[in-house]
Amino acid sequence: MKKFLEALIIPVILLIIWSMLTFTNLVPSYILPSPYEVLIAFYNLLVTGELFLHAMSTLSRVVAGFSAAAMISIPLGIGIGWSKTLERLFNPIIQILRPIPPLAWVPFALLWFGLGLKAEAFIIFIGSFFPILLNSLDAVKGVERVLIEAACTLGATEGQVLIKVVLPASSPGILLGLRVGFGIGFMCTVAAEMIAAKSGLGYLIMEAMRLLDTGEVVVGMLTIGLIGFAIDYLLLKVEERYIPWRGKTI
């Protein structure tokens, strides 16, 4: 309970400062809306179902792009981390593609997929692909040599080492990659929606901005924050549940 209250201190202080600034009209509402205006905007978006639709639209893109990225980058990362040959083959192209910001892919996303789910999903795919790939790769490379040797002296073949030692040993790193990848991918989707989409939370924010409805902008932003937080929390719980030994010394 104490911990819970502690977690509330800073948000409550911020809320008070925010209220004081806006209710006194020290800051006009077209610069920063008051908490009350945000609540009104939230209520309106909720009853019309708009908020739900846009959130679902963003989420479905995230799920599509993120799962596609995970399905390709995890096996690829494990392969590159394990095999020197694969590393030599893939490393140059990864190093060249990796620094390109996902949003730089927007023109091709539009050319190849047009407006809609696929283009956005492609951007999130690019955004989450590299963090997941590199974390998986590092996790495999970071597996303690002596654990592999221990398995060998217990009679493990290379395949058995890979499945029974390397995979479980690198699972915390892979999961970390998923969390980072999701965070980046999620940010990319919203940013991409601002540029090229007809739905989604990013689109909602840009539309509200066009109408100077700052309350709605804040609602969009907070919804993004809360969804991101909820999914990260979920992944963290998965980690705690399935990797109880994570972070502990061996």
Partner: peptide
């Protein structure tokens, strides 16, 4: 081994 080599996930 001299180091601890138990598999931490098992």
């Amino acid at each position: 081994f001299q180091q601890y080599t138990l598999f931490p996930w098992r």
